[in-house]
């Protein structure tokens, strides 16, 4: 369960202070499917980064599974990211010199999982996403949709509770975009919390809960508490 209470995030841009997030209160239960919409600069990505522990809020309390994350050290936060959170990015962020299999393996290497176990888990993950024959390919030999599927396999290989997706289809054509969304929704059906930032209303409609952000504030929330 994600609980954001009075979250505020302020950036200093030159002389100006920009309130990327102000007074954000949001509770997301395990297994929910949330889309976050909003015009650019409304703070969507910042909100996602705060939830993903990549960014620290300047004010407020963020508890993840009743754990106050603002109190954690950087290393503890890294460990939470490693085991509980999976990221899917608009630009995939695959390591170009590594093969698909190695990219998927990366989180387990960082977590110190045993090599033999890593291999079987990578195989299983790639097969389930229809990438079995692409295991030895490097990212530049893959199509956009395939790259994003590799990225999803990497995000979920540690079996996180939460998948955070930042415009996951932003760089894909329609067909592979739909494919990717279906994969993410499948994961959600299996119980993972899916939080997706998008500016595509069609995608947003598919989510069971829609959150709208304007100027760093939540302007509407279809679900919620």
């Amino acid at each position: 369960m994600i609980q954001l209470a009075d979250i505020e995030r302020i950036f200093q841009v030159g002389d100006e202070t920009v309130r990327a997030l102000s007074n954000v209160n949001l509770t997301v239960h395990q297994g929910e499917y949330v889309s976050i919409m909003g015009p650019s600069g409304s703070g969507k990505s910042t909100l996602l980064n705060v939830m993903g522990l990549l960014d620290r809020p300047d004010k407020g309390i963020y508890s993840l599974e009743d754990l106050d994350t603002t109190e954690l050290t950087d290393d503890q936060q890294a460990s939470v990211r490693c085991h509980k959170i999976g990221f899917v990015f608009q630009f995939f962020h695959l390591v170009p010199r590594l093969t698909s299999a190695e990219n998927v393996e990366l989180p387990m290497i960082l977590a110190g999982v045993d090599p033999a176990e890593r291999k079987t888990r990578v195989q299983a993950a790639l097969s389930s996403l229809g990438l079995r024959d692409r295991a030895k390919h490097r990212p530049d030999q893959l199509s956009g949709g395939q790259r994003q599927r590799v990225a999803i396999a990497r995000a979920t290989i540690m079996q996180p509770d939460i998948v955070l997706a930042d415009e996951p289809t932003g760089n894909l054509d329609r067909t592979s975009g739909i494919e990717v969304i279906q994969i993410l929704e499948d994961l959600n059906n299996k119980g993972m919390t899916l939080i997706m930032v998008t500016h595509d209303p069609n995608l947003s409609k598919r989510a069971s809960r829609k959150v709208q952000l304007v100027d760093g504030k939540i302007s509407s929330d279809t679900g919620g508490s």
Binding site: L54, D75, A78, S79, R81, C82, H83, L106, L110
Partner: peptide
């Protein structure tokens, strides 16, 4: 840079 950012996002602490 982006690889390092990614490693951090995947849960690598600074020491790693």
């Amino acid at each position: 840079t982006s690889e390092i950012g990614l490693l951090k996002a995947l849960g690598a602490p600074g020491a790693h």
